[in-house]
């Protein structure tokens, strides 16, 4: 039996990927099983899905703790989640990243293969939907499932044009990955196990919480795009601030020297005809992104009346 764990983010189709793998394996004549980590996660939050492949009927119902393969749909997950937890000694990790295997931040002793699935998906599918591309990559890297069956399962799920472009993306990833070679696992000094991640704070009598404690969840790492502010053009209307569902735009009032400098700069801009007089009065108000929490929804950019906010692809 082979076990595959898929790490993704809500909305990236991790569960669909796990299911398509299972369907493809079934097409190959195997028994298979796909299931999500049942949770309440919304778009962008880290999610996990699992697939098992076997020549015999699969009875095991537990989650996968010692995967043979790991697929990481989003390289930002490497720092947020222990993606290689329990990986078998000769296991393979496939990471969606334009970086080289050495640079994605995983243990050097592990067989890591990277593929720019986002790039391939944008080029062929036209949208950054990477799950089908990564399935092709999985078939290429591991040989556990035939690319034909992958294609069949994708077409069955997404008939028509959409399925076809997804199949093309999978095929391209398959070719790229089939050309890679097995890297022998190096025995590295056992990584010091991170001092238990979970805290052992005592629970109260009932599930009663303290105010605002959600702030430990850094939702900024869900982001694919981030807003870039052009403060020189900014009229200080405050729409970005007021329309942020995540309170991730900070309204800051400059004082003293800082405020004077901002006013001076604004006056120059007004003279140059770039901003209106009203904006000069509010020059001491600054809007800043709080990257810790911004999920990159783009509402601020869409609502900015002067198009002074641009959404930029997050460097991953």
């Amino acid at each position: 039996m082979k076990e595959i764990r898929i790490h993704g983010r809500g909305g990236q189709g991790s569960v669909t990927a796990a299911e398509l793998l299972a369907v493809a394996a079934f097409e190959d004549g195997k028994y298979s099983q796909a299931f999500p980590f049942f949770g309440v996660e919304r778009r962008g939050a880290p999610v996990t899905a699992f697939t098992r492949l076997s020549d015999k009927k699969i009875r095991l119902r537990s989650q996968i703790y010692e995967p043979d393969y790991v697929i990481v749909q989003d390289a930002t997950l490497v720092s947020a989640v222990d993606v290689t937890a329990g990986l078998k000694p000769d296991g393979i990790v496939i990471v969606n990243s334009e970086k080289s295997a050495e640079d994605v931040g995983l243990n050097a002793g592990i067989d890591v293969r990277t593929i720019d699935a986002t790039g391939i998906a944008l080029e062929i599918i036209g949208r950054p939907i990477v799950n089908t591309t990564l399935l092709g990559a999985f078939a290429g890297a591991t040989g556990e499932i035939s690319i034909e069956s992958i294609k069949q399962s994708v077409l069955a799920r997404f008939p028509g044009k959409i399925g076809e472009v997804n199949v093309q993306a999978a095929e391209k990833a398959y070719q790229l990955m089939a050309a890679t070679e097995r890297k022998p696992h190096k025995k590295t000094r056992a990584r010091k196990k991170e001092a238990a991640r979970e805290s052992y704070e005592k629970i109260p009598t009932a599930a009663i919480g303290k105010p605002g404690t959600s702030e430990v969840t850094e939702t900024g790492d869900w982001r694919i795009f981030y807003p870039e502010f052009d403060m020189e053009q900014c009229t200080r209307c405050g729409k970005c601030f007021e329309n942020c569902p995540d309170a991730a735009i900070i309204e800051r009032t400059l004082r003293g020297k800082e405020a004077d400098e901002a006013r001076k700069r604004a006056e120059e801009l007004e003279k140059a005809g770039k901003i209106k007089k009203a904006a000069v009065k509010k020059a001491h108000i600054q809007y800043e992104l709080d990257p810790t929490y911004c999920k990159g929804c783009g509402i601020c950019a869409n609502e900015c009346p002067i198009q002074g906010i641009k959404m930029k692809l997050e460097e991953k």
Binding site: G39, V40, I203, T205, A206, A207, I208, K210, P211
Partner: peptide, 23 residues
């Protein structure tokens, strides 16, 4: 523990599989 604006606690939170059993 009681609801108060002076010490605004959250009652009736949901517990994931890491906590439910212990509650």
């Amino acid at each position: 523990d009681f609801l108060s604006v002076y010490d605004p606690k959250s009652f009736g939170m949901f517990a994931d599989p890491n906590y439910y059993t212990e509650f």
